[in-house]
């Protein structure tokens, strides 16, 4: 395949995500398979790179959450086609993956931020154990122990639900102090994450997206 064609396909995937054009992403993804282009390269430097730009557009207040969600749909449209065809050897060489237990805390039925973060983790090659929303506190602990995941990521969209995260941090750290715990959601601040004993946080649902995008960007740099 010519360099020009590779560039063209990556651009199609990238722009299709940014412009939330699912049909364009589907067409480009099918072309990647039909023309024998490296699938992992297409995911990381086409789809994920597009989502990286989406994060920047959100940061610049050019895009808002509706656009993010539509871009995510476009990205998933491509992932659904490409992911089954990723060569494990390509993924295995990057060395920057792990397992994440993810969920919205009990009492909180908001999961938009959580689902976007899930997508970014998946794009980055993590194995995600998504517990969903309104997750009973002990389920985070049980799932981490069962899967031996390196990261537990919890989100709460409201002040009235975030207190449960403190209990989960305590429960997990007691069982396994090496687990990295990330908190996210609108009411969570760095102070609160520190107070709750977590290892990291995203300032808001929106920033959680940015953090996830940055995470993917760093992973891509590590992998390049």
């Amino acid at each position: 395949m010519s360099e020009e064609r590779i560039k063209e396909l990556l651009q199609e995937l990238h722009e299709g995500v940014v412009e939330y054009d699912e049909e364009r992403v589907v067409a480009a993804s099918n072309a990647v398979l039909a023309e024998g282009f490296n699938v992992y390269n297409a995911v990381m430097n086409g789809l994920a790179a597009g989502m990286e730009e989406v994060g920047e557009l959100y940061d610049q207040q050019e895009y808002f959450v509706p656009e993010l969600l539509m871009c995510a749909d476009a990205l998933y449209a491509g992932l659904d086609i490409l992911k089954p065809h990723i060569d494990p050897a390509d993924v295995g060489s990057s060395g920057a993956k792990g397992q994440v237990v993810l969920g919205s805390i009990q009492g909180d039925v908001h999961d938009i931020g959580k689902n976007i973060i899930k997508m970014m983790f998946e794009v980055a090659g993590f194995t995600v154990h998504d517990l969903g929303r309104d997750v009973p506190l002990e389920n985070f602990v049980e799932e981490q122990l069962k899967t031996d995941s390196e990261i537990v990521a919890m989100s709460a969209m409201m002040t009235t639900t975030m207190m449960g995260m403190k209990k989960v941090v305590e429960m997990i750290k007691e069982k396994n102090p090496n687990v990295q715990i990330m908190l996210g959601g609108a009411p969570v601040t760095g102070d609160i994450a520190d107070l709750f004993g977590a290892d990291g946080y995203a300032e808001s649902a929106g920033n959680a997206v940015q953090e996830a995008v940055k995470m993917v960007a760093s992973l891509r740099k590590l992998q390049s």
Partner: peptide, 18 residues
């Protein structure tokens, strides 16, 4: 509505089936 009647602590009711 999920009322969390059996949960210890403070949880506000939520809508389970949107």
């Amino acid at each position: 509505a999920t009322l969390y009647s059996d949960v210890e602590g403070i949880l506000y009711p939520t809508v389970p089936t949107k």
